[in-house]
Each structure stands twice: as structure tokens, then as C-alpha cells.
Design a binder for these strands. Structure first.
Lengths: 243, 243
DNA sequence: AGACTTTTAAATGTCAGACAAATAAAAATT
DNA sequence: AATTTTTATTTGTCTGACATTTAAAAGTCT
């Protein structure tokens, strides 16, 4: 069943893997309760702290949740799309920061993925999603908005575009790409003029989506990508010779 | 610094979050050694098992690695693209299986993302990557290949296509989408005739990539998507009325 | 002095037993 | 019958200990 050869490495890692496999293989169903820590330690012939370390590993991956009390215990989590976003975003953020990915590379990836959604979104976007985009555009045009808030709104707008494709798998995959870029975007200082240009492009995208004109959406996204890269390049240049 | 209010929830979760934040914020550098478990328990005013549970959580996310021995301890991991793949794949696999995503939805997402890479790949693919694709196509045409091996080769081919874009962020994002689909693909039984058709399309893709003809690549991917969906539909139909 | 072996110390990995806290079910009381 | 109290179960945490691994320090021999 969930046996455990005592040959190679950390017991807690082995136990975690055994339980993980049982979940993936469907041996353990969603919302099913695992044996109690005491029972698991009996079953695997290890101490309770070791079992606990294994369970914490699984909890870190959102594979299980724990509940205290009489009929408490560890339960198999239904990994929801929403719940998987955060993991995806954390991982992507770390990847981008630790591997010193260039802005260009990240930007290229982000827009390539987003353009993949555009045709589907043009076809399927709901009125609600369009309204969300319009609302974000309106927020972006308000004076006194911080750069951080501007970027956050930008992310929200693009999330709405992606969600418009009506494909949760796509939305999940892109959440990381779009949101993980935000820290990088935050490094750009947006002048009033650049904001105006971006908002204008955002409006074009919304209009095109309203008309369900996927060609126009794609073309505008390309424009937006080029403009974003240009902005980043200008900022980098200005910083290198501040005189 | 990495303080810890003892108000709300699990101490080990709080400590893990504190250390995680320190890593993300850059307060802890890659390959830097964390304080020993004893020191951490002193610092956070908790016991060593609690600290250990926190560290195991971080280890499960590949944020740290541990080493035994005299100058051992917990070290901040460089989260490599390669290393992030497995997490991405596990998460995506679980998502697909637990949420009963339809084959159509997963398939649509997968090809949408892949088509996003196609233009870049047509432009930048190396001779090596093309050779890899040719080799996989050759393998696919060998008789006696199991369905699992055929699918694995299929994954390898598409990975090569995606890698051809020369954008590690894209490759990382798509690894999950492509590989997580494999269990679903394995459920399709490939007849000799359907394999032949797929291989023919694969050859077309390789030819188009050799010619750096991105339009052709895209068109062929669309064909492949349609054919794949058709196959899945046929299998589903046949299973519903096995007479 | 230099190369090899032995010892030592530091660190993680594991264990055992205990108590605290939360929680739901069972029992008792009104 | 409804409410309160008790109880049992289970996770969360602590203390203290021992085992194992590993690198560096100490010692030994040529």
C-alpha cells in the first residue's frame, strides 16, 4: 500500500512522497481523511514528529489541510484553480528574481502567452469581463494613482482579458506569467505621457474585444508589447547615465 | 527582521512564511546558510521540532535544501527552471485530475500555448532542436512502440518545439501544460492509422520549422489540435456504446 | 615538514513521552 | 426537549535525548 523501504534518504520525505503518490494515483480521494498522526507513525514505523514533518511538506503544497479537535485530522485537499494560482505565482516570481531573467525575456513570454488567449477571448468574452476591463481602464486614468496601483490595475485588466477565453486551464497557466511580471513592471516609472499611451492601447483592446475583432486585439497587443519594451529600455538607459 | 506575532495560527506556518518572505525580498541570498535549527528556535522562541516543521515546508517548495554534518544546515536554493518544472507538472497534473477538466478544455489550452511559441520557434530554432524533433518522429514511426512510449515521444517533440523559442520563461510555463496532458493523452488508444496521420503532421511541422515558415507551423498545429480532439471524441463515443 | 589517520565538534535526523488546546460527540442536567 | 457539562480524540507544541553524518582540528608516522 503505502510502504516505505528504509534504504536511502529522509524518512519524512519518503513518507510525504508515498502519501503524495497515493493522492495522485487516486488511492486517496478528495476530502478523505488520512489516518491520525499516531496511526500513521504506527503504520510507517516511525515517530510522530517524523510523520508530522511529512504532513507539513504536503501542507506546503496544498495537498492536504489539517483540522484540530475530536474529528479532526489531515484531509486531502481539492486543489482548486484559485488555490493553485498562488503557488504558481510564488514559483514564477522566485524564478524571475533568482535567475535574473531579463525584462525582455519575461515580457516576450508574457505577451506571447497573452496573445494566445486573445482569439478565444474575442470570441467568448462576457459582458461582465468587458465591464471589468473598462472599469480598470477608468481607474488607470485617474490622477494621483501610484505606480504600484497602476501596475496592479494593469494586471487586473490583463487577467480579465485572459479569463475572457473561458478556459480555466489557460487562466491558471497565465496567472503566473502575468502576475509574476508585476515586480518587474513596478521598476518602471510611468510618466503621465506613458500612462496616457498605455491607456489608449488598453482602450483599443477593449474596443476590439467588444467588436469581437481578434485580429485587432492581436495587433494592439503587439503594439503594447513593443511600447512596454521601449519604456523599459528608456528607463534602463536613463539610469545608466543619470547626468 | 523575521519576527513573529503569536496571535493567529500555526507557528510553523508563520515561521515558514517569515523565512519565505525573507528569501523573496532578497534578505536571504541564494546559497546563504540559514541559522541552525537551534539558533532559529532561540530566535523565534519556539522549540526545535516546530522550527523543523517550518523548514520542511520550505524544503517541499524547493526553497531550501538541507545538509547534514559539521558545516551543514539549511541553504537557500537557487530555484532553477529545470527544478521548477517538476513542481509545475505535479500541480498541473493534480489540477487536471481533481477538477475533472474535460479533454477539450485541456487540449485547447495546450495548443493555444504551443501556438504562442510557434512564431518564435520558427524564427530561432537551432539545428539541434530540429534534429531532436526529427529523431522523435523517427522513433514514433517504429512498429511495436507502446502507446505510452508514443505519447512520451510526442511530449519530447513538443518540448523541443517550445524550447526552440529560446525563451526559458516560455519553456517553463509550457512544460506543465504539455506534460500534465500526457496522462489524458495516454487514455487515447492510438491505432496504426491515427499514428500515421499524427506522424505526417509532425513531419509537416518539422519541415515548416526547417523552412522557418511560421504560418505553416501554426496551420499545422491547428490541424493537429483538431485531429487530436477528433480522436478523443471517437474514443469517447466508442466507449459509450461498446456494442 | 608533509601526508595520513584519528578525534572531535557541530549539525541534522530521529525518537520517546508529555502537556496544551481545540473540537465534536456523548453524557448529564435542567 | 433543550441546554449545559463532560469526555475522548486529535493536532499543536515542548523538553530532552540519542544516532548519524560530516568537516575541520588534532595527532601520528614517515
Amino acid at each position: 500500500m503505502k510502504i516505505d523501504p528504509k534504504k536511502p534518504a529522509d524518512l519524512s520525505a519518503q513518507i510525504a512522497q508515498a502519501i503524495r503518490d497515493a493522492i495522485i494515483s487516486g488511492e486517496l480521494i478528495v476530502d478523505e481523511r488520512l489516518p491520525s498522526e499516531a496511526e500513521l507513525s504506527e503504520q510507517f514505523q516511525v515517530s510522530r514528529p517524523t510523520v508530522r514533518e511529512a504532513l507539513k511538506r504536503l501542507a506546503a503544497q496544498s495537498l492536504i489541510r489539517t483540522q484540530r479537535g475530536a474529528s479532526g485530522g489531515a484531509f486531502v485537499n481539492r486543489l482548486s484553480f484559485e488555490g493553485a494560482y498562488s503557488q504558481q505565482i510564488t514559483t514564477s516570481t522566485l524564478l524571475l528574481s533568482m535567475n535574473a531573467v531579463s525584462f525582455d525575456t519575461a515580457c516576450e513570454a508574457r505577451f506571447a502567452l497573452e496573445r494566445a488567449c486573445a482569439p478565444l477571448s474575442a470570441q467568448r468574452r462576457t459582458a461582465d469581463q468587458l465591464a471589468t476591463m473598462r472599469a480598470e481602464i477608468h481607474r488607470q486614468s485617474q490622477p494621483g494613482l501610484t505606480d504600484e496601483a497602476f501596475c496592479a490595475s494593469d494586471v487586473a485588466l490583463h487577467r480579465a482579458l485572459v479569463d475572457g477565453a473561458g478556459n480555466p486551464v489557460l487562466s491558471y497557466q497565465l496567472a503566473g506569467a502575468v502576475e509574476a511580471m508585476q515586480p518587474l513592471m513596478n521598476m518602471i516609472t510611468f510618466t503621465a505621457r506613458s500612462r496616457e499611451a498605455i491607456i489608449s492601447l488598453h482602450n483599443e483592446i477593449a474596443d476590439a474585444l467588444e467588436d469581437r475583432d481578434s485580429t485587432k486585439v492581436d495587433a494592439t497587443l503587439v503594439e503594447l508589447e513593443n511600447y512596454t519594451r521601449q519604456l523599459a529600455q528608456d528607463v534602463a538607459q536613463q539610469r545608466s547615465k543619470p547626468a
